[in-house]
Design a protein around this nucleic acid. Sequence first.
DNA 1: GCCTATTGATCAGTATGCTGAATATCAGTA
DNA 2: TACTGATATTCAGCATACTGATCAATAGGC
Lengths: 155, 155
Amino acid sequence: MQDTYAMPGHLARRFQQIAVAVFLAEVDAAGYDLTPVQYVALAAISANPGIDQVTLAGLIAYDRTTITGVVDRLVQKGLVERNESSRDRRARELTATPAGRKTLDGITPAVEAAQRIMLRGLTQKEAKDLIRLLQKAIASSNELSRAPLRDPATA
Amino acid sequence: MQDTYAMPGHLARRFQQIAVAVFLAEVDAAGYDLTPVQYVALAAISANPGIDQVTLAGLIAYDRTTITGVVDRLVQKGLVERNESSRDRRARELTATPAGRKTLDGITPAVEAAQRIMLRGLTQKEAKDLIRLLQKAIASSNELSRAPLRDPATA
DNA sequence: GCCTATTGATCAGTATGCTGAATATCAGTA
DNA sequence: TACTGATATTCAGCATACTGATCAATAGGC
């Protein structure tokens, strides 16, 4: 049996664990209070005003049931508005508020710094390779998770 | 601002999400009911009989407070025994039960299959590169998470 | 031996993520 | 139009993960 420390599953958990910790530390140091999940959701909503929750979920590969709580918290923080859709009364239309867009602008440098920090042990070439390999592995197994990415560009 | 889909933080979440889904599917198909976290904990306990919870946490990079619940569930499933330590009455000594060791043996092929599946889109060389790069990135940022790895071999 | 700082475990509270089910609504068809 | 199947959201329940606090016990310095 191979070394546990070399198993991709273990490495995935560790890398994600570190990525979240670095993200929260940088964002907090910049004076913001937003989780990685909330950030990605806010960015996607801001880029797609009026988006419904299922489409949003597919866009950022969340589970549908997780989205509800995430949006709840974004609404509670005043960063997002959730309104009943006029075309489909089942759906909710999500829009970033001015405060949401302002937060997004202000937080971006911290988010980018976090990305650099989590790769700080790698050379530029290694970092590019890692990103490429992760993207390739993820693309090949996208359908294996309950919340596959639904990229409108490739759908 | 760079593409969200190319951010290491996003890729870390997606890869971990897929890794967990693949693990659970393979383990379930093999007739077992064990999460990735429970598996790693059980393996570490089996390899280190009598280990206490803090040492276990360091060995597999868990948060101390998470361990309590994980061990609770392993004990409830009859795979692990938790006894008060005789040397230190604060500590708990963890041991795998015969059922725990049997589960570990039986589940190994499914766990290894899961590792292959989550890398199925990569060539052998790419898979090796990905593992190496993840290990390198993680090692450089180990101390940035609340639950850094405490490898007894390097401590 | 006593005091203080540390340590091992647990708990309360919050935020992902998932499964499976319920509810309301919509869309297509007989 | 009535019915059937699909869809958008939410909820209950469970399992990670984390922060910060509490509590019991230990260890080291004096």
